[in-house]
């Protein structure tokens, strides 16, 4: 006997939760317990009184599994709202990466030139290194990092994505 797994499609979920201790562990624990994937996760509180947090999770799975993930999340006591941004029409996604490259001479100049093309900002520099800040969707960040590998990449930190629907309505 061999074990096979079903291919899935990518979904971005925006989850509004009470900003209380242990809520992130509850959400991630649900994903591991039920065998769901987390490809990216971001979290920060979003209200002036620090009462609510928004968690953005990128997950994947066949449609019935995505449906079940949303239902399971919605059932958790501290969860206020779960939105599948794919259901809300178009949405925008952004991610920040901090990318450190080290080197001198032509590679250093090429790194700066490519950063300019990608509209990455220099947020730290020494005579032998740069730290770039790049914002964009994950593909753009991936491509920038891939190019930097050729220009002396030494370290990367990425936030994971945040996402919001297009248009005037709040979801």
């Amino acid at each position: 006997m061999k074990i096979t797994t079903e291919a899935g499609e990518r979904h971005v979920l925006a989850i509004t939760v009470d900003n209380e201790a242990g809520v992130l562990a509850k959400i991630t624990g649900l994903f591991t317990a039920r065998g769901y994937n987390i490809e990216s996760l971001t979290v920060a509180d979003i209200t002036a009184d620090h009462a609510l947090s928004r968690i953005t999770i990128v997950t994947s799975g066949p449609p019935p599994v995505i449906d079940q993930i949303i239902a399971q999340l919605d059932r958790l006591v501290p969860v206020h709202k779960v939105i599948d941004l794919a259901d809300q029409g178009a949405h925008v996604e952004r991610e920040i990466a901090l990318v450190k490259v080290a080197g001198t001479g032509e590679k250093r100049i090429e790194a700066l030139r490519l950063a300019d093309v990608f509209r990455a900002k220099v947020v730290d520099t020494t005579l032998t290194s740069f730290v770039f800040e790049i914002t964009g969707n994950s593909d753009k960040v991936d491509r920038f990092i891939a190019l930097m590998r050729e220009c002396g990449l030494v370290e990367v930190g990425r936030t994971g994505i945040v996402a919001i629907s297009r248009g005037p309505e709040a979801v």
């Binding site: 074990i3 797994t5 624990g29 591991t32 317990a33 039920r34 065998g35 769901y36 079940q68």
Partner: peptide, 17 residues
């Protein structure tokens, strides 16, 4: 079985959790 993980199957619990 892996195919039933997460479905509240008979005698399922989140052992690693």
């Amino acid at each position: 079985p892996t195919t039933l993980i997460g479905t509240d199957a008979f005698q399922e619990c989140d052992t690693v959790g």
